[in-house]
Design a protein around this nucleic acid. Structure first.
Length: 271
DNA sequence: AGTGCGGCCTGTCCGC
DNA sequence: TGCGGACAGGCCGCAC
């Protein structure tokens, strides 16, 4: 479920409480996530001080002196800081306990998330090294997207959701940013003009920034590092609004499936 | 090399 | 109320 704004919200929420703190132990209740939590993780983290917490794409990176742990929240994961004495519930698979009594707890009903050890050069890890640019950084530009998309027949929505093209644009914000710039989601990526990519890049940045400001989008169960929901859902123009009136032209919002993902758009406003 | 799809899981909701 | 099926915020790995 979490897209970039939800991961960023989580990261910002937990970092101030965890930086410079010491890890006393980890608790693994269920090792079977998307990939098994490494059996050596406890040994690597125990007694280590947390030097840095940051984000790359939808991964949260937690750095200690001799390496970095990766967290990915998959579709249904959340990370919260709780008191170490708070009872774990059914889908609370992992705890990272600090010596100050706080505990970083991963809850993930569907278990599509992951926790991995990435060593000293985490950005060279197999899962990170070929990721595309960060959408909120300056190197994510219309020229880049335009160049990458030439000759591509793939639809533009699927194209911008490919993390090897640009990270962090998930199913909600892909539909939302395409609506904002009037591009039809099933248009071929290679048939979108440079000028329209200018607009798309701007809208991706805008929608992600607004969502971060609102603390992310909570559809059913996303919560930030303190267990609170995000409030961007009420700002959505198309996602989840099939049959409802377009906020601009009042015609009904349509839903289609692209690459096995539900996609929302306005037939009148998007071409 | 680009593209499309299966699969990984559990929970929820909807129609019968 | 029960049951089957569809669907859900991601994305790797494979076949073509």
């Amino acid at each position: 479920m979490p897209e970039l704004p939800e991961v960023e919200t989580t990261c910002r929420g937990i970092a101030p409480h965890m930086l410079e703190q010491t890890i006393s132990r980890i608790i693994v209740r269920n090792r079977q996530l998307r990939w098994p939590i490494p059996t050596t993780l406890g040994k690597k983290l125990q007694g280590e001080k947390i030097a840095r917490i940051y984000r790359r794409g939808k991964y949260i990176l937690l750095q200690v002196s001799h390496g970095t742990t990766l967290f990915h929240l998959g579709m249904s994961g959340s990370l919260r800081l709780v008191d170490e004495n708070e009872a774990a519930e059914k889908h609370d698979h992992f705890d990272l306990v600090l010596t100050n009594g706080l505990c970083l707890r991963l809850r993930d009903p569907r278990r599509f998330g992951s926790i991995l050890w990435a060593g000293k050069e985490p950005l060279q890890h197999k899962l990170l090294k070929s990721l595309g640019p960060e959408p909120l950084e300056e190197d994510f530009t219309a020229s880049y997207l335009h160049a990458k998309s030439r000759q591509r027949k793939q639809c533009v929505k699927t194209f911008i959701m490919d993390s090897h093209i640009v990270v962090g644009v998930g199913n909600i914000y892909a539909s939302e940013s395409l609506f904002r710039c009037g591009i039809h989601p099933s248009r071929a990526a290679g048939r979108v003009s440079k000028q329209r990519y200018e607009s798309l890049v701007q809208m991706i940045k805008q929608v992600l920034n607004e969502a971060i400001q609102k603390g992310g989008t909570t559809l059913r169960d996303f919560v930030n590092g303190s267990g609170e929901p995000g409030y961007f859902a009420q700002k959505l123009n198309v996602y989840g609004r099939e049959g409802e009136a377009c906020r601009v032209c009042k015609k009904p919002i349509r839903q289609i499936t692209l690459a096995q993902r539900s996609t929302f758009y306005c037939l009148a406003c998007q071409h």
